[in-house]
Structures are given as C-alpha cells and as structure tokens.
Design a protein around this nucleic acid. Structure first.
Lengths: 333, 333
DNA sequence: TTGTATGCGTTATCAT
DNA sequence: ATGATAACGCATACAA
C-alpha cells in the first residue's frame, strides 16, 4: 500500500491536481504574478485538496519562521499573565506565533529554553529573565524586559525611577510626614530596582523623613518587614504614615501585617504600590499604585524585536507610568 | 564573499571537522551505536563548532515536532493564567515546546490559530475553546478542556456536577434555608454548565428551597443579578441566605452588589464560588469555593494528548474537586 | 509568464 | 560499523 492513504497534500499534489507546475503553485501561494487562468485553477486545487503550506519546509528554506519565543516567570502571577497576554496580542497582530516558556525564576530553565528555541530557529526572543549569565546567540534578536544587559540588547521597561519619584511626591502631597519604602526582589541590576532611587530623590526633594527596608530575593521577606513594623509601632500607632511598596503584591502583604496591629489604610496610613494590578473580577485596584503600561510594554517590545534588523538598537526604552488612585490613599477630591 | 561569514554549523560542518561522514554524526546525535573513537571525535567537533540541531530540518524529515499548541481565552485571568502555567510545566517536563494563543473568546481567532498551527505541524492541540464549530484535522490529536465535542475528542474537566452538588450540600450543612445559584456563561453545552445540575440535585436531595438565576454570555450579567437581588431584599434583609456562584469571579461581583445593600458574608449570607482562585499576593482564597485541580487538569490533558496515538480515547475525564473553606462561609469548627 | 532543477539540514537506506 | 545518497516540502534561479 504505497498509496498515500491519508497523506497530507503538498505543492506537488496541488500542481498535479491543477495541471500546472509546482513553481506556479508556489507563486500563487506567495502572491507573485501568475496568469489569471492558472491562478484560478491552482486556487481551486488548493481548496479541493485542503492544502496547507508546511511551515517546517518553508522555515527550512527561508530561515524565517514567524515565531518568537517569550520567557516570563509565571503566568499565574497577574502581572506576568497580563504581559504574556499582551505580548501574544502584539505578536499575533503581526501574524507571528509565540512560544511561551514559564521559567519559574529557574536560571537553568531559562537557559535550557533559550537553547531549545535556538534550535527551532525562532526569529527572536523576548525575555523577562533573572539568570545572571544568559547566553544567547549574537545573531538572534533578543529584547529584554525590565533588565538591562551590557551588550547591544535593547531593554524595554517602565519608567521605574520616575514611578518611585511620583510615589514619594504623591504621599507628601497627601500629607504624610514620614515615609517608608518596602522592597523585596532580585539582587540583580534591573530596572525595577530604580524604584528605590526615584523614591529617595522624591523624599529628598520634599525634604521628608524616610526609611528604606530592602530585602534581596532568596530570603523570605516576611520576618524582616514584620520586625520593622513592630519596632516602629508604639501604643498602637506607627511612627510612619506613608508607605511605598516595590510591588502591589508586597503592598498587600504589608497591609496584612499592619492589620494585625489594627492599622488600616487609608486612614491610619497611606500606601502606594507598584504595577497597577486590578482585581480579577471587579477590575478595581487592590491599592493605590504606580501603574505600568503593560500593553505598551508588549507592543514596544515586539516592535523593537521585529524591526531590529537594520536600525540601531536603543539600549533602553522607558515607558511612562501613571499614578492610579486606589483604596489605600486619601481621596484627591 | 561566498564564505559563510557567520553561518550556523550543520551536520556537514561537524562531519568535516571531525573527519567522518554525516551519517555518523547523525548517529552520535541520536544516540545510535557508533564506534567509540568516532563518537569522541564527533562530540569534540560539536562542542567546538557549537553545533545545534535544526529542528526545522528535523521536523520536516520526521514530521514530529515536539510542539503542542495551547488555546486559552486570556492569561490575564488567574484561572487561565494558572492553567497555561501548569500546561507549560507539564509539557516542558516532557521536552515539548508550547505555542500559546490567547483567543480572547474570539471564535475567528480560535479557528485562525488552529489553521496556523496545523501548517506548523504541531504534534497536538489542547484547547479551551468556545467557537461552536471548531474544525480541526482528524489526524491531529486534539484534547479539549471543559467542553465536550461529539467526535472522538477527549474532554478533560473538573467534576463540575459534583462540585455543584458539594456546594449545595455544604450550604445546607452550614445552616442555610434558601439558596440561590447565580450563573453567567456561555450558552454552549460545556462542562461548567453542569454545575447548575449538580447544585439542583443537591438542593432537591436536601429538600431546600432554591432559585437559579442564569444569564448567557453576550449579555451583561450585571443588571439581571442586580434586579434579582434588590427584588429579594426586604427591609435590609435578603430572603435567601446561601449563594452559590458559577465562578469565584462572579462571587466577587455578587458580593459587591450585596455590599451595596449592607449585606455581608459570612454573617448575613454565605457564599460559595467555583474555581478556588487565590489572592495573587497573600495566597488566601477570595471566597469559599469549589476548587478545581488545575495542575492535575493540565497533567492529564497533556498525558492524554501525547499518549493518544495507539490507545482508545476516553470521551470524558472528570477530575475531583474539593471544597475550599474561605472567608465567605461560617467556620466549620 | 511557466516549467525544471537544485538546495535548505536532517535522517534512513543502502552498499561497503 | 561506517560512508554515500536519496528524500522530506518548499522556494528560487534559471531555462524555455
């Protein structure tokens, strides 16, 4: 039974069916000029046989695959989940496919995935990565999110410094007298770590007292923060009245800790987070926040990646952030 | 400059470098028996040239791509975000790559993506889809999540019927006298719609009074639910005291509506949702809920998809759900 | 304009 | 056990 039983049709089959040559079929497929009669016959044959191009054969020939690999830590996290969604949107708008890899902050996985997709001849990689020594082929376009690399790799990021600045300014404007910045995160040099610098600058500029409580990644941040908080509460009252947290996630955790001391936002204390996460059902912000423009980040990352071929690569693109009023600061009328 | 400037090395290059034939190289790569001397030489050459297999060439030859396509509506939704994450985990554990498509509930996009990945010769598709008339090639393994298809397509789902049953039982056990089930969703025949049936069965079995308030997809569910609620509140008191919602998301929305009438869970009313969504930062449930085993769903979906080749296809696999005690029901001691 | 032949990188089938 | 060669499906350069 050499007969192709349930064989998927190829250009050859289409050509035979249409009574033309394979070259002609190829031209029709790719929209190259072809005689009208031929075109019709070929199109009919394609429909009849339900022919689909084989992108593997195509990719082999063209070494262009219309596929981009995306690395994020974990789509179960709302920020990364939305980022993945927006990247997917930006890519599919341009008719690109997206390989997704959730790295779970695992350095080894990050590198393994990059190796894997390099075999797969992706047209580029967009990565929000943590491994200190990612190695990616020079010739493969790479765009980093939130983390600068030394080489000619573009980094797309929110304007974190300015976000920190805005947070400090806002808390001052809202009447706070003593601010605290809580931060947990990676010890890497990355963009989000500029939130602290911006915050400090804002505090100094407003000549306000402040503390910075910072914890690097591997440790469990909870005890450090808990200790700071209980150390700074006397008689049920905190000696700080404004809090800026490096993420909304941390803001929620800090709020829980404060609640144990019967301290609540926005009356006892005002809190601003970072990211602008919205409640999954109601769409309301969990806390006042510096909101990141996730859709824009995705759009710019994809645009930068795909246009990269011939233009110069900007080392860093910062997108504007915005103050998002939520339930943890006093109303600004 | 015919010289391959920054050409990526192929088996040929490796063969030349190692002074052997291409066939030998291929055998080494694929772990086929090869003389020890040759093997060493080849491996050295591979390392020296930093050779990587070209999966496109491999896929063309083998028509096996170690790639699976996944369709979900939107990874920004925590349920789908976690599902995508777990599917990714289950796939990468087996050394499979994952194409992700966020469909945004768009029927056209669903079909377009399926067409696209069929060109890409994926080894299978896992889809949580809504389009009533998905057409996917017979020969391409397809596993559906939460939605049965008529043909021999396996459907993986939580035990939705039983979840509804458990919810009703639980509310009775907690002392409720009159239950309401709120539901919005797709008019399709899908698994989640069995939550209502299970709930009804539970109510009947417990001989308790109940209402079902159901809204199909396209409409905005808010007004219908709002109306039901205000119609059933007299003098600040609702004439129902137990609520089961088709999702946690809806449960949150209903809680907001009730809050406008100064009715709060768990004291004035007890509420159970469905899905078991946890707060992104604190990890606490938003509401008492029937929790879906997302990781198991993913694992079983992938396993079913990849083993499918030769065994019989089960039409429906239901995974057990679990009652998750949250802040919206009274403590069970 | 259309048809033919060659090559992309890999693997499998042969001879050796 | 190893080396040469054909074939996978497509696109393109070249010949007709």
């Amino acid at each position: 039974m050499k007969q192709k039983e349930r064989m998927v049709p190829t250009v050859k089959d289409v050509a035979r069916e249409a009574g033309v040559a394979v070259g002609t079929v190829s031209k029709v497929i790719n929209g190259k000029p072809v005689g009208d009669e031929y075109k019709k016959k070929v199109e009919a044959a394609i429909k009849k046989l339900d022919y689909r191009i084989n992108s593997y054969a195509q990719g082999l020939k063209a070494s262009k695959t219309y596929t981009v690999a995306v690395l994020v830590p974990n789509t179960a996290n709302p920020f990364f989940g939305e980022l993945a969604h927006e990247l997917n949107f930006a890519l599919s708008k341009r008719n690109y496919r997206m390989y997704l890899c959730c790295t779970d902050y695992d350095f080894r996985l990050e590198q393994e995935f990059i190796n894997m997709v390099q075999m797969n001849k992706v047209d580029g990689i967009i990565g929000l990565t943590y491994s200190p020594d990612i190695v990616v082929d020079e010739s493969l376009p790479f765009v980093s999110i939130d983390r600068p690399f030394s080489q000619g790799i573009p980094c797309i990021s929110s304007d974190n410094y300015n976000g920190g600045l805005i947070a400090a300014e806002k808390l001052c404007e809202l009447g706070c007298r003593k601010l605290v910045f809580f931060r947990n995160g990676s010890p890497l040099i990355n963009e989000p770590n500029k939130r602290a610098s911006g915050f400090e600058a804002g505090c100094i500029h407003n000549n306000i007292d402040y503390d910075i409580v910072s914890v690097d990644d591997p440790e469990d941040p909870v005890p450090t923060f808990k200790k700071y908080i209980s150390d700074h509460i006397k008689k049920g009252k905190a000696d700080f009245d404004g809090v800026f947290c490096v993420t909304d996630s941390l803001a929620c955790i800090i709020m829980e800790m404060l609640a144990e001391h019967d301290i609540y936002a926005p009356n006892d204390i005002q809190i601003i987070g970072f990211d602008g996460i919205k409640h999954f059902a109601t769409g309301k912000p969990y806390c006042s926040s510096i909101a990141q423009p996730i859709a824009d980040l995705a759009e710019v990352a994809v645009d930068t990646l795909l246009r990269e071929s011939n233009s110069v690569k900007p080392p860093l693109i910062c997108l504007p952030v915005e103050y998002l009023e939520g339930p943890t600061t006093k109303q600004t009328r």
